[in-house]
């Protein structure tokens, strides 16, 4: 059963195109990731699906309701956590949660089981003003507020941006837990490493879909031989490899380089050409593609996105 459906959605802001003919569908109970750099159109798509923005062209439904005509039905059934912290800083943790519970015509007590795992972690600070919470705690409070009315669909716009790695990991554990309760989750993130935690992902760049599948299938579909290179002179090596005839693409990846080559280029050929240029300390390993490799491969060649 399809819970979220977007059909050829287009959105423009003046001359800037945010979304072009974007279509996707999310199954009920799925944990679905929108992966893409800043400015890819993730927020626009989420805002169209949460009835906050009108698409210029195309249609979309959430839980079977049209986002334009039945926006009020959708607003009752979804939980939404915007990209930046959007709670009342001068209200305490408990007051924020109570306010949103009442706004949805329910109480904290009635739905305590949904938020218990998350809220328990910040409950010791329930009298503290939300503005005085740490980044990770703010995020948990915002999630509690988005969940307090037991939504069927949850939209999270870059929930882990600006959160420390430990809290990020914890947060994904929480999302898995919510998924087990049958909540359909659409989450956007610029962090490629979080993609593998989703059931299915959509890679988005410049408002266009680059690919949509399970993370494993996307990685498997990577079409080229891929190598990981380490060297103490990484920058020079990058420039050297860019000029080689066997190179399809090469880009920095953390501390190393990822090199995609033409098919059937033997390992010793790469090794020897590096040695001949004095890169004697290289370590060359054949690797499986990561989501980031898939993204770079599918990306428009001219674009230079900011990848985290």
């Amino acid at each position: 059963m399809i819970t979220i459906q977007a059909n050829e959605v287009n959105k423009k802001y003046g001359d800037t195109i945010a979304l072009r003919d974007l279509s996707l569908s999310v199954e009920k109970g799925e944990l679905f990731g929108l992966i893409g750099p800043d400015g890819a159109g993730k927020t626009s798509l989420i805002r169209i699906l949460t009835t906050l923005l009108l698409a210029d062209k195309g249609t979309a439904t959430v839980n079977g309701h049209d986002v334009v005509k039945s926006y009020r039905a959708i607003r009752r059934q979804v939980g939404y956590m915007p990209g930046r912290f959007s709670l009342y800083q001068d209200l305490s943790v408990e007051e924020n949660l109570r306010f949103f519970a009442t706004a949805f015509g329910t109480t904290i007590e009635a739905n305590y089981d949904v938020i218990r795992d998350i809220y328990q972690q910040i409950e010791p600070f329930r009298r503290r003003r939300a503005g005085a919470l740490s980044g990770g705690m703010k995020q948990k409070l915002a999630l509690s507020c988005a969940l307090v009315h037991r939504p069927e669909v949850l939209f999270l716009d870059e929930p882990t941006t600006g959160v420390d790695p430990v809290s990020r990991q914890e947060f994904w554990q929480i999302l898995k837990g919510l998924q087990e309760r049958g909540i359909t989750i659409l989450v956007s993130t610029p962090y490629m490493d979080e993609a593998s935690l989703c059931d299915r992902i959509a890679l988005i760049q410049d408002g266009q879909l680059l690919g949509i599948d399970t993370p494993a299938a996307l990685r498997k579909a990577y079409p080229h031989p891929l190598w990981d290179l380490q060297s103490s002179r990484r920058y020079e090596l990058l420039h050297f490899l860019r000029q080689q005839e066997f190179t399809l693409s090469v880009f920095p990846f953390g501390e190393t380089l990822h090199l995609a080559t033409r098919p059937d280029v033997p390992e010793h050929q790469i090794r020897e050409s590096c040695y001949s240029q004095g890169f004697t300390d290289i370590q060359l390993t054949r690797i499986e593609a990561t989501i980031e490799d898939c993204f770079m491969d599918r990306m428009a060649p001219t674009a230079d996105p900011e990848i985290h």
Binding site: T51, L52, R75, P82, F85, S86, A103, F104
Partner: peptide, 13 residues
């Protein structure tokens, strides 16, 4: 400005 209107709008209010 604080973005809370966004959250209020996506509610039955």
């Amino acid at each position: 400005e604080l973005g809370t209107m966004e959250v209020l709008l996506v509610s039955p209010l």
